[in-house]
Design a protein around this nucleic acid. Structure first.
Length: 583
RNA sequence: GGGGCUGUAGCUCAGCUGGUUAGAGUGCCGGUCUGUCACACCGGAGGUCGCGGGUUCGAGCCCCGUCAGCCCCGCCA
């Protein structure tokens, strides 16, 4: 049907007869002379209709063309006159002199514009989702999905080259009461019983290791019925890998290879290995387990420097086991009242007592915190003139998030030096368990199949809260790209961990019996990783939202506005599934 | 589950202290126009002010509720 693509035509095609198919992007009718910008996935080309070369019928059709209609045109590529070239268009040196045109896909007036002028705003996102096919015609979204495709192919190739086998695992799986809420699927043939959609293929990939597949990967769709965010969709895609006979380093090497390839595909030359940072150090220096290492500006513990003249509330907090921790922001001594209020608001939101701040000027210290911190402490701070010291006092679970928030904002100041554009790191030695500071309830920090750190095995029963895990996260510019671990392969160890989580032996067998049996049947040591693929595409495409790198995304209320899901079903459908609606 | 922002023409928005007939740009329809490229110019049509209730002589504007979208907290092993 076509001989060429709209976006590929160049001066080298001058003189070529072409047949093109595409969408009418815009039409300009000058009266007896009609220009049509014809669009396909590869770009735009100007088609000109004039009575000297086009048939009378073609002229008539051209004058009636409406936006977004699909047409087939036949004509000849000609060079534009020098003054008629369009430097903003890849095809701007030429145009197609049309002879015939046929509307093969008439279009109603688009509900939202596809063609936009410079500086023209996008339609509201609700409308863009409702009319998704029109929005997807925009070159930005097409470019994002092209990028997504290229990244997928690159990841597949890299893992396949490393000896990983792509194996598909079930979408209809067994519900898991832990973790996120499951999407449930009722069984028609087994009244009252349900499948769940997988939150991840975690257990299946471990079973594949036990089955001897050695190295597995999957571009896996995962489902979690939880409330959404700009970077969270109810269904999402992971690059999921697992390998046998591996230590954390081995898995990290595979993941580094994939990330180097993906970033390379997006045109960024990055190098591995990535630096390793212990979880405890990350929390100490950055207040978060996914630090943005593009910047310095680290948190320091200044508790030891607090003197007798510090304010009572500080000394009381220290006495209660808290610490005084501070950031020093270069150049921020000039910060406006409004900027400092911004930091204070973050601290307040983190439920900390309040922000204490002092600025170092040429002549000494000024600011709200001077009196609170006291001269003794200020005298010991190694702050240079021009620096703004931001401090918070309290227990670590309060000061860490507060100071992380403050640092994230402070680091956006114009004066802060960016050390690199692509700061990758591994966070290692995570704690195996997390104890809620308020309720005191212990839960696994990740999933219950994560192996305890071999050096901490003894602590597992004596001091579980200080037991580290063979768990590691890949972090990029303050974003968690994914996480992984070495798994427990000793059924006895697995039972101990379940026990510590308060899962009774009977429950263990009912919920995870198939995994425990598998581990007892000859399980190789194994571990793996899962990369959040949508988020990676979003970062590499520099898209503002996950929804811009997913063809048909859900809203924050988990609705699909285009096709209208979810939707009520008939009473008969429910009855066949042995269900009754309470809604 | 909680908080915030938004909702006026197909689209993007304006709409004063609550006051006459709700406006603009763009798109759409009609017309003029042979080198435009967000073509230009002339004319026209187009409104459940998200929805429901209330206050008021009078509500796009104030109050209550509700729906939808977005952002955040909780949640997301």
């Amino acid at each position: 049907m076509r001989t060429h693509l709209c976006g590929e035509l160049r001066e080298s095609h001058v003189g070529t007869r072409v047949r093109l198919g595409g969408w009418v992007h815009r039409r300009r009718n000058l009266g007896g002379l009609v220009f049509v910008d014809l669009r396909d996935r590869f770009g735009l080309v100007q088609v000109s209709f004039n009575p000297a070369s086009a048939t009378g019928e073609a002229m008539q059709v051209a004058e009636q063309l409406t936006s977004e209609a699909v047409v087939l045109i036949e004509g000849c590529v000609v060079a534009r006159p020098p003054e008629g070239r369009n430097a903003e268009l890849a095809t701007g040196a030429i145009e197609v002199l049309a002879e015939t045109v046929k509307v093969v896909g008439p279009a109603t007036t688009p509900a939202i514009p596809v063609a936009r002028g410079k500086g023209e705003k996008l339609a509201a996102e609700e409308l863009r989702l409702k009319h998704r096919i029109l929005d997807l015609r925009r070159s930005e979204l097409q470019a994002n999905l092209v990028m997504r495709h290229r990244l997928l192919q690159r990841a597949r190739k890299a893992l396949s080259d490393e000896g990983f086998l792509e194996v598909e695992t079930p979408i209809l799986t067994k519900p898991t009461p832990e973790g996120a809420r499951d999407y449930l699927v009722p069984s028609r043939v087994h009244p009252g019983e349900f499948y769940a959609l997988p939150q991840s293929p975690q257990i299946y990939k471990q079973l594949l290791m036990v089955a001897g597949f050695d190295r597995y990967f999957q571009i896996a769709r995962c489902f979690r019925d939880e409330d959404l965010r700009a970077d969270r969709q109810p269904e999402f895609t992971q690059i999921d890998i697992e390998a046998s006979f591996v230590a954390p380093d081995d898995v990290q090497r595979f993941v580094e290879r994939v990330l180097v390839e993906l970033w390379g595909e997006a045109g960024h030359d990055i190098s591995a290995p990535f630096p390793r940072l212990a979880w405890r150090d990350a929390m100490e220096r950055f207040g978060v387990d996914k630090p943005d290492l593009r910047f310095g500006v680290e948190i320091a513990d200044v508790s030891q420097a607090v003197g007798e003249d510090a304010a009572p509330f500080i000394r009381e907090a220290l006495g209660a086991g808290g610490r005084l921790r501070a950031l020093s922001v270069p150049g921020a001594a000039e910060a406006s009242r409004k900027e400092i209020d911004g930091y204070a608001a973050i601290v307040k939101e983190a439920k900390a007592g309040g922000l204490i701040w002092a600025r170092r000027t040429g002549s000494g210290w000024e600011g709200q915190g001077v009196r609170a911190l006291g001269n003794e402490l200020l005298g010991r701070l190694v702050a240079k003139p021009g620096e703004l010291v931001l401090a918070v006092v309290g227990p670590d679970h309060v000061t860490s998030p507060a100071l992380h928030g403050v640092r994230s904002l402070a680091v956006r100041r114009p004066g802060i030096v960016r050390l690199t554009d692509h700061a990758f790191c591994w966070i290692v030695d995570f704690p195996l368990f997390e104890t809620d500071p308020v309720t005191g309830i212990r839960a696994f920090a990740h999933h219950p199949f994560t192996s305890p750190h071999p050096d901490d095995r003894d602590r597992l029963t004596t001091d579980p809260d200080r037991c580290r895990a063979l768990h590691y996260d890949a972090v990029y510019n303050g974003n968690e790209l994914g996480s992984g671990s070495i798994r427990i392969t000793d059924p006895a160890m697995q039972a101990v961990v379940f026990e510590l989580l308060g899962i009774e032996a009977q429950d263990q067998q009912r919920r995870f019996g198939f995994l425990l049996d598998a581990l007892a049947s000859g399980a190789p040591p194994h571990g793996g990783f899962a990369l959040g693929f949508d988020r990676i595409v979003m970062l590499l495409a520099q898209a503002p939202s996950l929804r811009d790198v997913i063809a048909f995304p859900k809203t924050t209320a988990a609705r699909a506005l285009f096709e209208g899901a979810p939707t009520p079903v008939s009473a008969a459908d429910l009855e066949a599934l042995h269900l009754r609606s309470l809604a």
